[in-house]
Design a protein around this nucleic acid. Structure first.
Lengths: 247, 247
DNA sequence: ATTTGTGAAAATATTCACAGCG
DNA sequence: CGCTGTGAATATTTTCACAAAT
């Protein structure tokens, strides 16, 4: 998994689901919903693993942490498994979210359907720019960040999504935490410091691209050590590979 | 790291940088740029680790994979380290990117500054909707997806970013790969199948929220086993914790 | 004095391979 | 039989702790 390490593992011996497993449960859940929509009511670990893009032993081990019971010789009951995973992920309740920063990205996020599709409700949009306050987006009126305490209390918000520019992110984060938010999803390209007990996850386009760059670079170098190889696509890949060869 | 596992480790014994390390290098790079902007020209592993949100032993071990040389008793030369990490990540060249899907999210991505800030250039915008073709966004004219082969060849594109709805993503992915793209960043909420040698990374809002949900849920249950505890923020957290308690 | 670089230990995660259940 | 659940084996990642370098 990424270096995203929410607070330490639960102390309870048995309810402790490994972090790597937790990160995959939503993927299984999505695959299961798709299968359910296709009318499947039972699925083997092999088939589900394929749909989720993992190997079947891993899937079975993951599910075993839920105490999940499939039927040997048959597979898993789709509806039952959806229920068990939803329960494990805490999706049996509706979480309420505040989105801070309604710029370019914030707008897109506010309109994103995937938000509401899995039990998350955007209950508030906040921004520091007074010119944006009052603007209506996706049925909500933008409020000023200074109202964060009231908003969090009124709406029972537990998750904050930060879509501000990087320089503003830490202060916004502090304000959210002070208001009682204990989970943060950060789209701003920066590291956030939070007290113990607050979880942060980040989504960072630029980091993902750089990781791809690493692999692309490696492929280009490893491939033909001759830098100016013409590759299948017809395009000339990695015109600068010289530099890399003599590393 | 997430279950994002690009192709197998390089066979070369020594150029093999662990995947977990690769995923952190961009974070270090960002921190180093910030330090450089503040005029620092030397930094200790302790200080850099703090800025990057990791522990210092991990940072040193990571850097050791680059064959990076700091100075004992002093620390690392900021400019030199920027250079070494950039080189390791393949950022000494400019990668060219095609963005497919100019809906809500695609628009936001096209306008995202962080793209160009680190050596990535969006060279083409593509969409399947004829009504969108010709639209100008961020200085580029949207072209039809059917032109993908020509576009990839013309611009030497090696990275494709998919920001389409989920049902279209696999087909777009196949088209990109057929055109010669070997790295994909997927924003669509679905699993992509690609042949060996093609790397995929995904960015998935809904999955991140569900992971936060898990931890939020766990905190709520662990905290007061009494579900209706009133928490600092004044809001009533996890009104549904009953369900969880008797799991 | 400091602070790196790194073996060795510990913790996590993945994969194998098969006993055992339906 | 077929397929799950899981111990045991392997691989990867993190952390410790200290010798070596300046």
């Amino acid at each position: 998994m990424s270096d995203q390490r929410p607070s330490a593992r639960a102390s309870s011996r048995h309810r402790g689901i490994p972090e790597a497993t937790v990160a995959r449960l939503p993927v299984y859940l999505r695959a299961l919903h798709a299968l359910a929509d296709e009318g499947m009511d039972t699925v083997s670990s092999e088939a589900l693993a394929l749909a989720a893009g993992v190997n079947s032993a891993k899937l079975r081990k993951d599910l075993s942490h839920l105490g999940s019971y499939g039927t040997r010789g048959v597979g898993y009951d789709v509806a039952l498994l959806v229920d068990q995973i939803s329960r494990a992920l805490g999706l049996t309740q509706r979480w309420t979210v505040a989105l801070v920063g309604v710029g370019n990205l914030g707008h897109a996020l506010a309109g994103y359907a995937g938000f509401s599709s899995r039990g998350f409700r955007i209950a508030a949009l906040l921004d520091a720019d007074p010119a944006r306050v009052g603007e209506r987006i996706a049925g909500l009126s933008v409020r000023h960040i200074s109202e964060v305490n009231a908003v969090v209390a009124e709406e029972g918000i537990s998750i904050g999504v930060i879509a501000t520019p990087a320089p503003a992110a830490q202060e916004v984060c502090d304000q959210l935490v002070a208001a009682g938010v204990t989970s943060i999803l950060n789209f701003a390209p920066c590291v956030l410091n939070v007290p113990d007990g607050v979880d942060v996850r980040k989504v960072d386009l630029s980091i993902e691209l750089q990781i791809l760059s690493f692999h692309e670079h490696r492929k280009a170098v490893q491939h033909g050590s001759t830098p100016l190889t013409r590759l299948p696509g017809g395009a000339q890949r990695d015109p600068d590979a010289r530099e890399a060869v003599n590393e």
